[in-house]
C-alpha cells in the first residue's frame, strides 16, 4: 500500500479547490446557524442558484464572466429574501423544514424539462469557465512540492477561492465584532429578549440570511468556475448535510470553524476513501467493494455528525464553557 501517496492525496484534497469552495459555503452556514441560530438545512439551494447564475448567463446567453458572477450573487440575495420573508417569522423547526424543501424544490425546477432552454435540464451547462481561465496568471505546468502538486488551472481556482475564504472570514470577523454582530448573537440566545430591547428581530434575521446566502451563492459560483460544467443533481440535500458536519466539526460560532472543519473533514474523507480503495484492491475488505465505498463514506459522515453532537458539540475550536451553558 502506498501510504505516503494516500497521505499526499488526502493533503491535496484538504487544501484543494473543493475544500476551499466548501469552506466558503460553510462560512455562510456559520452566519446562519453559528451566530444567528437559524436552522438552515437548505444551504445547497444558495449554491445551486449561485452556480446557475453563472451557468445561465454564461452558458445560455453567452454573457461575459463578470455578469455571470454578479448574477450568481444576486440570485443568492434574491433567494434569501424570497425564502426569508415568509419563513423567518416561523419557529425554528418550521424554518428547518422549509429550507430543505425549498432547496429540493429548486433542484426539481432547475432540472425539469420545461426549464431546459435555460438551465439545460439534467444535463446542466458546460464550458462555463473560459473567461475565468483566461485570467489565469500561472503558466501551464504543475506547482507544488513533493507529491502535493496542482495543475495551473487548479492552482488558479485555489488561489481565488482561498482568497475569497480569507476575505469572507475577515468580513465575518468584522461583522461579528460589531454592534450588528452583537444583536445577531443576541438573537441566537433569545429572540424575545432582543425584541423587547427595541431591535427589529425580523430585519436582522433577514440580513443574516442574506449575508450567509451570498456566501453560499459565491461558493456555487466557484463550483461553476472550477468544474466548468454544472448539473442540478450535484446540488442534492446531502451537500447541505456535509456542510453541517464540517461546520460542527470545526466549531459553530467561530470565525475559523468553517475553514478548519472543511480542511480537516476533506482530509479525513479522502484519507478513508483512499485507504478503503487501497485495501479493496488488496482484497482486505470482505463486504464492500468498488461502488459501495462511496456509500460507506456517506455513512461515515452520518456517524461523525452523531458522535460530534454527543461527545464534542463545540467542535475542534469551539469553547466548551459556552456549550455547557444551558441555552433555552
Amino acid at each position: 500500500m502506498d501510504f505516503l501517496g494516500i497521505l499526499a492525496t488526502s493533503l491535496t484534497s484538504a487544501i484543494g479547490p473543493v475544500a476551499a469552495i466548501y469552506a466558503l459555503a460553510i462560512i455562510g452556514l456559520n452566519m446562519h446557524f453559528g451566530y444567528t441560530g437559524l436552522l438552515n438545512f437548505g444551504q445547497v439551494g444558495f449554491m445551486l442558484v449561485g452556480a446557475y447564475g453563472v451557468g445561465i448567463s454564461v452558458g445560455t446567453f453567452g454573457l461575459p464572466l463578470s455578469v455571470g458572477v454578479g448574477a450568481g450573487i444576486l440570485c443568492g440575495l434574491l433567494l434569501a429574501l424570497l425564502l426569508g420573508i415568509p419563513t423567518l417569522r416561523l419557529r425554528a423547526d418550521y424554518l428547518a423544514i422549509c429550507t430543505i424543501a425549498v432547496a429540493e424544490g429548486l433542484r426539481f425546477v432547475y432540472r425539469a424539462p420545461f426549464a431546459r432552454d435555460f438551465t439545460g435540464g439534467v444535463f446542466g451547462r458546460q464550458n462555463l469557465s473560459e473567461g475565468f481561465r483566461e485570467l489565469n496568471p500561472f503558466p501551464p505546468g504543475r506547482y507544488g512540492f513533493g507529491d502535493i502538486t496542482f495543475s495551473s488551472p487548479h492552482l488558479w481556482t485555489m488561489v481565488v477561492t482561498w482568497s475569497l475564504v480569507l476575505v469572507a472570514s475577515l468580513v465575518m470577523w468584522s461583522l461579528i465584532h460589531s454592534p450588528w454582530g452583537r444583536v445577531i448573537k443576541g438573537l441566537r440566545e433569545d429572540e424575545d429578549a432582543v425584541r423587547s430591547l427595541g431591535k427589529n428581530v425580523f430585519a436582522y434575521k433577514l440580513q443574516s440570511l442574506a449575508v450567509g446566502g451570498v456566501f453560499g451563492a459565491l461558493a456555487g459560483v466557484m463550483i461553476a468556475l472550477h468544474q466548468a460544467s454544472i448539473t442540478p443533481d450535484q446540488f442534492r440535500p446531502q451537500v447541505t448535510f456535509y456542510l453541517w458536519a464540517m461546520l460542527l466539526l470545526g466549531g459553530a460560532g467561530r470565525v475559523l470553524g468553517p475553514v478548519i472543519g472543511s480542511v480537516v473533514m476533506w482530509f479525513l474523507l479522502t484519507f478513508t476513501d483512499e485507504m478503503m480503495r487501497a485495501m479493496d484492491q488488496m482484497g482486505w475488505l470482505p463486504f464492500v467493494s468498488g461502488g459501495e465505498l462511496g456509500a460507506v463514506r456517506h455513512a461515515l459522515v452520518g456517524l461523525i455528525l452523531v458522535l460530534l453532537i454527543i461527545y464534542r458539540p463545540q467542535g475542534l475550536v469551539g469553547d466548551r464553557r459556552e456549550m455547557l451553558v444551558n441555552v433555552k
Partner: peptide
Amino acid sequence: LTKALTRL
C-alpha cells in the same frame, strides 16, 4: 422567566 442572553 428571565431572558438573559446567556452566551453573551
